[in-house]
Amino acid sequence: MSRLENKIALVVGGSGGIGSAITQRFASEGARVYATSRKGGDGDTGANGTGSVLFVQADASSNADLGRVFEEIRVEEGRIDVLVVNAGLAEHALLEDLSEDHFDRTFGLNVRSLVLAAQGGIQLMQPGGTIVLIGSIAGDIGTKGYGVYGATKAAVRAFARTWANELAPKGIRVNVVSPGPTDTPMMANASQEIRDAIVSLVPLGRMARPEEVAAAALFLASDESSFTTGAELVVDGGMNQV
């Protein structure tokens, strides 16, 4: 049996890179997946395996846009079984160069939208619902020029612990997947020198594939992790573990 058969899933930031891999994997496991995209238009992509995908245009940092998505799901499905919050950005800025705009933009998408999505999601969740937040090992390490990004991902981890505690009486689990360097289109834009330098820090000798991060998200979204909440599942090839 497919692990998400007949489940309704929402992937916030589900149209590219890791988000796209999660969207497609969930659909292949039987879920009806709503995936938000800031640039993409509405459109049903049809079946994928035993499930299906519906892309919905929405800015994850907009309360109005997220509200519209939740209302659409409420009307069409009546519930959400799985919520994944993946939307985020990482921009380089040293402490001496930090601007208010950089700070507000990064925290607005990486943290504020996370809170808004969780608030909306739990209104449509029943006991057995799961929330999977996409963090990063950047929340545990100090990468020069990415202090604000790292701080947002540390916030993701902190929220997961708190929400797991708050939502346990409702039967809702909350967990985090924290990838290390992942071979996404964004990473493809980096120079070969930078890519080689990053890979040299990974004991397994390569970057993660988006599909490997999606597999971790699937585990936390499915009943296979039914006694796991408040946890962080790291997918980094050992980079920050050994």
Rank of each mutant, 00 (worst) to 15 (best):
S15L: 04
Y146T: 14
A160T: 14
G19T: 09
Q241H: 05
I172R: 09
V176Y: 00
Q123S: 12
L10P: 10
A9R: 06
A87Y: 06
T45A: 08
V148N: 01
V111Q: 03
E96S: 13
H92S: 05
D196H: 07
A93T: 05
R173W: 02
G67D: 13
V235A: 00
I198E: 11
V85T: 10
E212L: 00
G135R: 05
D236M: 03
A117H: 05
G30E: 07
L4K: 02
S52D: 09
A35W: 03
A208Y: 00
A27V: 10
G78H: 08
P169T: 15
P179D: 04
F159G: 07
V177Y: 00
K153D: 12
I73T: 07
S178C: 01
V53L: 05
E193K: 12
P210C: 03
S15E: 05
K7Q: 10
A117G: 09
F70Y: 14
D140M: 12
L167F: 11
A90N: 14
G43Q: 10
L109E: 08
G13A: 10
S222I: 03
V56T: 14
V235K: 00
T229Y: 00
T130S: 11
V213N: 01
S178L: 02
S20H: 05
L167A: 13
A117P: 09
N175R: 05
G205V: 08
V156D: 06
I141Y: 00
L124I: 06
T106A: 01
P179I: 05
I80T: 14
T229I: 04
E72F: 06
L66Q: 13
D223H: 03
T162V: 15
G16F: 04
A87C: 04
A158D: 12
A160G: 15
G121Y: 01
V111Y: 00
T184F: 00
S191E: 12
G78T: 08
Y149M: 05
R195M: 11
T152F: 00
A190N: 13
L109V: 15
T50N: 07
D97H: 02
L167T: 12
E76G: 15
I18N: 02
R161Q: 14
A47N: 13
R209F: 01
V12Y: 01
G14L: 02
V85H: 10
I172F: 01
A221E: 11
V111D: 03
